[in-house]
């Protein structure tokens, strides 16, 4: 990456972060001294997960993980917007261990592979040509 595109990226990220800060700021500034529903909800839950302040870092991290997994840059911001802070945190912490539902067609292919292996090993003979 050359210097100018790096600079452009930095500016983009900074602008974006300032934008996000502002929108969060506006939401809370309107009623700074109201007890929010989120606070009450946290209070009612035994397994309270106090939301971490590292939100922006989590967002950056999850963004780059999703991009690395092939999610398109056009779609990624919308996807991040849809996540709650707790969900963001979970994705950041353990995206690589999370199951990703793919489905039955995948299963069929998986079973084919197993039987092909079994065939190759001489345990089964489903594909006589192998």
């Amino acid at each position: 990456m050359n210097i100018s595109s790096c600079h452009w990226l930095k500016r983009f990220v900074t602008t974006f972060m300032i934008g996000s800060l502002l929108s969060v700021g506006l939401q809370t500034a309107a009623y700074a001294d109201v007890v929010s529903t989120a606070e009450l909800a946290a209070q009612t839950q035994a397994e309270t997960q106090r939301q971490q302040i590292g939100g922006f870092l989590a967002r950056d991290d999850v963004r780059s993980q999703l991009l690395a997994h092939g999610v398109s840059p056009e779609a990624v911001e919308d996807r991040l917007d849809n996540l709650s802070a707790a969900e963001m945190q979970q994705l950041q912490d353990r995206m690589d261990e999370m199951p990703a539902g793919e489905g039955i067609l995948g299963a069929v292919i998986g079973i084919l592979v197993i039987f092909m292996l079994l065939d190759i090993a001489g345990v089964t003979d489903i594909f006589p040509a192998i």
Binding site: A68, H69, G70, R79, E87, L91, M95, M98, G106
Partner: peptide, 16 residues
């Protein structure tokens, strides 16, 4: 959909 994982995460199903 997450192409690199050929699947979808539970969290994004909920969020979407």
């Amino acid at each position: 959909f997450v192409p690199g994982r050929q699947g979808s995460f539970q969290i994004e199903m909920v969020a979407t």
